[in-house]
Design a protein around this nucleic acid. Sequence first.
DNA 1: CGCGGCTTTGATCCTTGTCAACTACAGTGG
DNA 2: CCACTGTAGTTGACAAGGATCAAAGCCGCG
Lengths: 253, 253
Amino acid sequence: MNNVFARKLRNAGPLGPDDMERLEQVISDPFELGAREDLIHHGDDPENVHLVLTGMACRYKILPDGSRAIVALMLPGDICDLHVAILGQMDHSIGTLTDCQIVRIPKNTIADLLDNYPRIRHALFWSTLVDEAILREWLVNMGRRRSDHQMAHLFCEVHTRLAAVDQLYDSLMPLTQEELGDILGISSVHAQRVISGLRNQGLINVQDSRVSVQDFDALSEFAEFEADYLHLGEGRANGVDATAEHGAGRSPA
Amino acid sequence: MNNVFARKLRNAGPLGPDDMERLEQVISDPFELGAREDLIHHGDDPENVHLVLTGMACRYKILPDGSRAIVALMLPGDICDLHVAILGQMDHSIGTLTDCQIVRIPKNTIADLLDNYPRIRHALFWSTLVDEAILREWLVNMGRRRSDHQMAHLFCEVHTRLAAVDQLYDSLMPLTQEELGDILGISSVHAQRVISGLRNQGLINVQDSRVSVQDFDALSEFAEFEADYLHLGEGRANGVDATAEHGAGRSPA
DNA sequence: CGCGGCTTTGATCCTTGTCAACTACAGTGG
DNA sequence: CCACTGTAGTTGACAAGGATCAAAGCCGCG
């Protein structure tokens, strides 16, 4: 099973063989994109929905002073702008952070999934609601936590989200300190200090400027990370069609 | 026309007489609630969708240290948790800030609206997407703007949102400084200093601890407020559309 | 009248931004 | 092979925004 999209949607609940087959078709024609390229610009009126298969992409806004605020991270299996036709112009941009494999899904394919595959529809709605929940958690993080806790919280979230689609390999975040700063709303200089602080506390590893989690439990405790907002518990028997028990390998909350 | 819900939905596009009639039924049985009461608690598995008719409510989270982060403001016409059945437990709470008139809408009424009233369905999806866009803007605000700009931005947003449902009366925000602080992620003491700063600059009025906008243009310029994220342009001809224009009346890009 | 909640103001401390210099390293062209 | 360049990471010094603590004023209400 190498379909991250299906893997992600199974977090919302079981899918049937017909669902799986349809999802296989949907992701059949991916394309490659380099790091730091835009998928959609602020002001565009997009025609397609985008799905990330590998790599990391983000939503961002550019402020009048030229600085960038990253407002969402898109990991493998994440889909964006489900209801792309409803709002007219984009109020933000979407771009890659790393090299990515992306699938463009035409609007009528989405309509077909929503109309004719009730389990997929359910899962897609679930996914947009989780995106919203993540946004709320980021808002709390930004407003109420010190930047070291905030950074730790981000790492816990990404760790958990990647684990939920079986994409948790060695390097957690192949991002520059400036990019991390743009996510957390801090300067790149301060991001550096925070990272070395976390490393010195033995919470994370840094190799070749790549962060990986050293001690997830300690890190979550430090970050006050509570995974409930990711709503990964709903599809408990999240194998195909409820009969097959595919362990998700998630760590418990 | 005293139906704020319909008024709000018309921002997404025109509605037909049948839509209006159905919406009239939906809001027929409101109840009153005092300030600072909870509608839904963190951890609940709610049964109903809530709609604000008058007053101001919010989504919030309580942090381990006991402080509160307000992550969304609900104004007259705003509906919450459209897909209430999809995520299990609430990851946040919803409560009133002021005295409110609220309508509880049963899930099957929502299902009826979504299934049988295409223009209403379109408008409801529009409204959830706008909520998400607001969340993104708050995140940018929180992470990247100084707290005086941030406060000004909030006032501009609320001003614009209230105007969009014809509810813009004298007092913009009947909130305490502590509540404003919980929205912006600052302390109540600092909120006070920011407010007097804005007043001294002639941007806002404060009477009986209530804020109103003095000079909206100057305030928006100060806040770098760009209303595009509220997506109020889509339903340009947003009157009741008696000629039954079924195509959802979106404006061309 | 006194109490409690909210606002106002001052003093001090902590977190983070900004500026600047320096290091490390990969890529490029001589 | 080496100098040159650009990008990212590292470190230090200093300034600013905002938190925290504390005290006083204001006002509605029992």
